[in-house]
């Protein structure tokens, strides 16, 4: 297994206040890396930093190595060729991350046409295939519809299809199941896991839900106050946590992890 993306000593400060104090993470192709921690611990900021989408007025240092270069030192224009094409992102709430006024087809094909230079027909055919892959019924029809005509779970599947459209190597999923009903969460996680296995994607799964984590992650990192306090294989971190913070997170769960994992 080779490292698809390596984060080393990532520091981020927003408006002069440091929120990440040197984060180290390694993502590997075909593996799901879970990033856990309470809100405000810096999980989302880590994900956004990879794509260079940190909020206005933030500064970052350290290294984010991908494809032989440091993304933190890549000019904006070249970064645009990586965003969506090599590294894609799925956001927390699909009801706000899909544009309400553009058809699903438009949102699914525009970056394919831009990054891959596909024609309209080609892009549409590929989009139909993608929707089928994420199990949207009637993909042909779905292309002409708008996001509000789908359920929350369907929308997240569409958002995942959008993220996968250009066959990226790395997928950053920021709390992809948090805004969804518990009943559809499992389906989305299974989908992510399957895509990771089939396409050899390196997935960074950001979540505060250790139950989600134990269900799909291969490796787990736990963040607290802008630092990764523990990293390791899922079984090891969740069964024999070394850091007291991880232990307290686990103790807060109603059911011990591992007992409901597949």
């Amino acid at each position: 297994m080779s490292a698809a993306l390596t984060i080393e000593g990532l520091r981020v400060s927003i408006g002069g206040r440091e929120v990440l104090h040197g984060v180290d993470l390694t993502l590997e192709a075909g593996r799901v890396h879970g990033l856990a921690g309470e809100s405000g611990s810096g999980k989302t900021m880590t994900g956004l930093a990879v794509l260079g989408l940190l909020p206005h007025g933030s500064e970052s240092s350290g290294r984010i190595e991908f494809g032989g270069r440091d993304l933190l030192r890549t000019p904006e224009r070249e970064l645009d060729a990586v965003r969506g094409a090599k590294i894609a992102m799925v956001f927390q709430d699909p009801s706000t991350s899909l544009h309400p006024m553009l058809t699903v087809g438009r949102q699914l094909t525009e970056h394919m046409r831009h990054h891959l230079g596909l024609g309209r027909r080609e892009a549409r055919e590929r989009a139909t295939g993608l929707l089928a892959k994420v199990r949207i019924p009637g993909p042909e029809e779905a292309l002409k519809r708008y996001p509000h005509q789908f359920s929350g779970g369907m929308r997240q599947r569409i958002a995942i299809a959008v993220a996968l459209a250009c066959e990226p190597e790395v997928l950053i999923a920021d709390e992809p199941t948090t805004a969804l009903d518990v009943t559809v969460q499992a389906g989305i996680l299974r989908l992510l896991r399957g895509l990771c296995d089939d396409l050899g994607l390196a997935v960074l799964l950001v979540t505060h839900d250790l139950g989600v984590m134990s269900a799909v992650a291969d490796e787990v990192s736990v963040m607290k106050d802008g630092l990764v306090v523990e990293t390791g294989a899922r079984g090891q971190v969740l069964r024999e946590p070394r850091h007291p913070y991880t232990r307290s997170l686990l103790d807060a769960l109603p059911v011990p992890p591992g007992e409901n994992s597949p």
């Binding site: 794509l51 969506g84 094409a85 894609a88 992102m89 991350s97 544009h99 831009h114 958002a159 959008v162």
Partner: peptide, 9 residues
């Protein structure tokens, strides 16, 4: 933000 994450101009 999602549109920017797609690398659109």
């Amino acid at each position: 933000r999602a549109a920017r994450a797609k690398g659109l101009p």
